[in-house]
């Protein structure tokens, strides 16, 4: 057993307090009865009620979910293809440009991505709205998906695909029957990542949207600019709650799978 270290315990406690205290405070104050967000006036769910009755927020939430769903799905398809090309297609002309275009959006400031896409949409005369946000979000989140999927593909034993070919699969069948089922967890987490990126995005959506489509982050941003509001606290609490439940569930599932796998492998080693 490792020796207990006061230094480590302190740094972990303070570190996680720093990470979580602001969010905990936010959650607590969302149940504050007072309109004044810094004065505690008793427990109440009043702001949740007002939030639900706020048509504008509900509309924005609906737009955001639609955008996130379509853009993450498209991004997952394109990103997985791109990852496959990066890892497996070998050399082709323009490969350097291709990998550059995959990695650049990851480090590109959002203001530049947003600005450039807006100028494109204006240039080609595309009406700004849900479609343009979906296009914009797909473009940058496909790069994240392809990074997640390609890191899985790199560690993927290439001989599995060769074995499939050797046993008579066409390259497409080999992908469908062998590669895809094995990289599925990475593809799914790529999708989830793309979905949250789209849900969170303020800057690119602000640039690429038109008057017809307002997403939740845009709504929150314009509300928050004027100061702290209890309704936003309530909304934040709901979003934090969803993410927390989702992440904890996912990690429990993967932990259970890992434990089962370890147990099976031990049992297998004993039967030798």
């Amino acid at each position: 057993m490792r020796r207990f270290s006061w230094f480590n315990a302190t740094s972990l406690t303070l570190g996680f307090a720093f990470l979580y205290l602001p969010m905990v405070i936010l959650v607590i104050y969302s149940f504050n009865a007072s309109k004044l967000v810094t004065v505690w006036a008793g427990f109440s769910t009043r702001w949740y009620g007002e939030l639900i009755r706020n048509e504008e927020f509900l509309d924005a939430a609906w737009v955001t979910l639609k955008v996130a769903f379509f853009s993450s799905t498209l991004a997952t398809i394109l990103g997985t293809m791109a990852a496959y090309v990066l890892v497996r297609a070998g050399r082709f002309s323009g490969r350097t440009l291709f990998s550059g275009m995959i990695y650049a959006p990851l480090v590109m400031p959002e203001v530049i991505t947003g600005l450039s896409l807006l100028l494109l949409f204006i240039g080609i005369g595309l009406d700004r709205g849900v479609l343009t946000i979906v296009l914009a979000h797909t473009t940058f989140s496909m790069c994240y998906v392809s990074v997640v999927v390609s890191s899985r593909l790199t560690s993927f034993d290439r001989s599995l695909e060769e074995a499939a070919l050797d046993l008579g699969c066409s390259p497409f069948d080999a992908f469908r029957l062998v590669t895809l089922p094995i990289i599925a967890p990475a593809v799914i987490s790529g999708w989830l990542l793309a979905f949250t990126l789209s849900l969170d995005d303020l800057v690119i959506a602000s640039f690429t949207t038109g008057p017809s489509a307002t997403t939740l982050p845009i709504k929150i941003f314009s509300a928050v600019r004027l100061g702290v509001s209890p309704e936003i606290n309530a909304l934040s609490t709901i979003m934090i709650g969803i993410v927390t439940v989702g992440v904890i569930t996912a990690s429990l599932i993967s932990k259970r799978a890992a434990v089962a796998q370890a147990r099976d492998e031990q049992a297998a080693a004993r039967t030798t």
């Binding site: 969010m23 405070i25 969170d200 941003f221 606290n233 934040s236 934090i240 993410v243 992440v247």
Partner: peptide, 15 residues
């Protein structure tokens, strides 16, 4: 925290 909204995390500090 990485999965929770960036905007919300910044907003939390305002209060």
């Amino acid at each position: 925290p990485f999965w929770t909204s960036f905007l919300i995390r910044v907003y939390a500090w305002m209060g």
